[in-house]
Simulated assay, not measured.
Amino acid sequence: MGTPDETTESGAGALAARRIRALIRRAGALAAHRTRALIRRARMSRERYSWRFVNIGLATAILVGSGLAAISGQNATAQAAEKQNDTVVQADWRVDTVLADMSAAAEKAAADQAAAKAAAAAAAAEKARLAALPWTLPSDARITSYFGMRDGRLHGGTDFGEFEGEDIWAAGDGTVSYVGYEEGGYGNVVYIDHGDGIQTRYGHASKILVDEGDKVSKGDTIMLAGDTGRSNGPHLHFEVLIDGEKVDSLKWLEEQGLNPG
Rank of each mutant, 00 (worst) to 15 (best):
G161H: 12
S66Y: 07
D196A: 12
A171K: 02
L63I: 15
G148H: 09
K127A: 15
R36A: 13
V95Y: 09
E9N: 13
G13W: 13
A171G: 01
G261H: 10
K108S: 04
G65C: 13
L224Y: 01
M223W: 00
I192F: 03
H235I: 11
T158Q: 06
Y49N: 03
M102R: 15
K246H: 15
L130Y: 01
A104C: 01
Y186S: 08
G219L: 10
E245Y: 06
I168V: 08
S103V: 03
S103L: 06
M1E: 14
A115K: 11
I20V: 14
D248K: 00
D211A: 09
R21G: 06
I168T: 04
Y202Q: 09
V179R: 07
V247I: 02
T60S: 07
A122P: 01
A141W: 00
E245G: 04
K218L: 08
P138I: 10
A91I: 06
A128V: 05
I24Y: 09
T77I: 09
E9Q: 15
E183C: 01
A205H: 09
D86T: 13
A171M: 03
E162G: 12
A141F: 05
A22E: 13
D112S: 06
L68G: 13
L209M: 08
E164W: 14
I222A: 08
T8Y: 12
T228S: 05
L130D: 02
G233V: 11
G28V: 06
Y181R: 00
G172R: 08
L250Y: 07
F160A: 07
I198H: 04
L63E: 15
Y186M: 07
R21K: 11
I192T: 06
A116M: 07
M223F: 02
V240I: 04
T3E: 07
Q113S: 10
Y186N: 13
T97E: 15
L68I: 15
A16S: 12
T97S: 11
A104I: 06
G67P: 09
I168C: 01
